[in-house]
Design a protein around this nucleic acid. Structure first.
Lengths: 320, 320
DNA sequence: TTGTACGCGTTATCAT
DNA sequence: ATGATAACGCGTACAA
């Protein structure tokens, strides 16, 4: 029994001939080790948890895909959970992850309460979150949106725009408020005017952007450029513009955030602010890995840049 | 100890007062049960596995999302794996699922070898796959593509098209070959001509569609309509057409397959053949649930319809 | 209604 | 280099 275990775990304390014999029998019997028993006995789960808020937003699958590849390469497995923007589902998901004794959790949602994380910390489980002002525990991946947003506004101004609206995400999501505030601050810094009605609030999905844009189209004082808090919203806005018989970038310039692959494939390809997904995934993984090896739980902070990617959805405003 | 276990599992054989006391202590200690120990002892993992081939294709996240919701509602958890079209990763994923003693696996990839499934069947694990001719074991979800493809061709012919090309997926994927063959048969049935060069082969991602369409554009005898084996490929083709300065549907009509949400949000919105994702997810889940309750493992076969959804990417050909 | 004791499949510790 | 045996944390049959 012990020898079998040793063989399967590649211990060197087993005679090659014996190992061979073991492997043969294993093969014949179709024996597959039981990972529950394994982790119960060893005290190691070899599991990381990843929580995201919307698997339907292409931003996240790429994150997951990258994280999973890294994990597999390092002999870890990954459990996923999709909260669908529902805090209750977040709690459920984290709970289940604790039950599985994951060795670390990456919470890559836009909103996390401290209470959720406290549970994890009580169990001494390393946590990494995306930058969230409300959360002060665990390691944090900061994504510096201000640079990208500043670049975007500068780009639009250079093209001649002075009337820029912003379609924000739901204001109960901290990340959405944060991006909106950065936008507003940057607008102010550039001494542009920003009527209240140019800040729209939207569900973070394309439908939301569609609705928000329809509202903007009804305004008497229309902006000439639209920035959206994510690409999906920007796509929804684009559709609303098209359905109104108007054209991008002739009638409106549009800038998104995220740089999901699909913005290449719409017409016109979207100008957007790239959020470095591969780096986020890598950063989350390595942070978890380090934190789980070093139980001292020193907080790791990282700061990832954003960057404007200019494509065809921005141009000089029509009146120019 | 036993009383604690009973309390946590909601046994009625516990005096309410005791139960309350237990819960309080549990709360204070921050105790969370260990699911490994639980499933080791009970012999039940309460786990289903889901394997998909490309999490980056929006077709799959919706599948996952639906499946996960159903599972949670029924007290099950789900482990996912993304094979990235790599048969080796499929084997790895299935292996890990067996190690976790999942109570069923849904293999929702386009290609599965019998050998992979044999391992699962040896362990008496229920399996459900999408229709795959090579695989004869386990339950099967059939998706009837022929109806949708026939509808699409009829729709194009009604508009006046007679020259229809097909961008197929990689011919080493059985599902890709199958769709292509159905298309070819349907073309023949309608007595249309189908030069060999109108059957393009493509990577199943937008880049593939882009490249394939560029090749089609170089042809002397161009088709007037393009059908693609999935929506992502269709989006790639659409982009290639746009970049060539041409217009859809003026210069080419395009029909995709899948009906992913995003095809609403490109311009023009894509005509496509809807594959019923929610039903696939539900069918996969209920099949697994039934099969895992009834260890007799009777094969369940279901047949799901496809349906043409007409939007704005199809119109009469220009020459008409 | 509660507590005791064994077993689940594996790893780890000790002998051998 | 190998085998016996005690954990790991939970469920459960059985005793109390």
């Amino acid at each position: 029994m012990a020898t079998v275990s040793r063989t399967l775990n590649g211990s060197s304390l087993v005679r090659p001939a014996t190992a061979e014999r073991v492997r043969k029998v294993v093969q014949e019997l179709g024996y597959v080790p039981n990972s529950s028993a394994r982790s119960l006995s060893s005290g190691k789960s070899n599991l990381f948890g990843v929580v995201i808020s919307d698997i339907t937003n292409p931003f996240f699958p790429e994150l997951i895909s990258n994280f999973e590849s890294l994990a597999l390469k390092n002999g870890y497995e990954v459990v996923f959970a999709n909260t669908n923007y529902d805090p209750e589902r977040l709690d459920h998901a984290l709970r289940r992850m604790v039950e599985r004794r994951v060795e670390g959790v990456a919470i890559l949602t836009s909103e996390v309460h401290d209470s959720a994380i406290t549970m994890l910390r009580r169990q001494n489980i390393p946590v990494v979150t995306l930058q969230q002002q409300t959360v002060q525990q665990g390691s944090i991946i900061k994504v510096d949106h201000s640079v990208g947003i500043a670049e975007a506004i500068a780009h639009l101004m250079e093209l001649g725009h002075r009337d820029i609206a912003f379609i924000a995400g739901p204001s109960d999501l901290w990340s959405a408020r944060k991006r909106r505030d950065i936008f507003a601050a940057e607008i102010k810094r550039n001494k542009l005017t920003l009527p209240a009605e140019w800040i729209a609030e939207s569900d973070p999905r394309p439908e939301g952007g569609f609705d928000a844009m329809q509202a903007l189209l009804k305004l008497k004082n229309r902006p000439t450029a639209i920035m959206a808090t994510n690409d999906l919203i920007a796509l929804g806005a684009l559709r609303a513009i098209n359905e109104a018989g108007l054209d991008v970038p002739r009638d409106f310039s549009i800038v998104g955030i995220d740089d999901i692959d699909l913005v290449h494939y719409v017409h016109p390809p979207l100008t957007t602010i790239r959020i470095p997904r591969p780096q986020i995934a890598e950063c989350a993984f390595t942070t978890l890995l380090e934190n789980s090896r070093n139980p001292e739980m020193k907080k790791i902070q990282s700061n990832l840049p954003t960057q404007l990617i200019v494509r065809a959805s921005t141009a000089a405003p029509r009146s120019n």
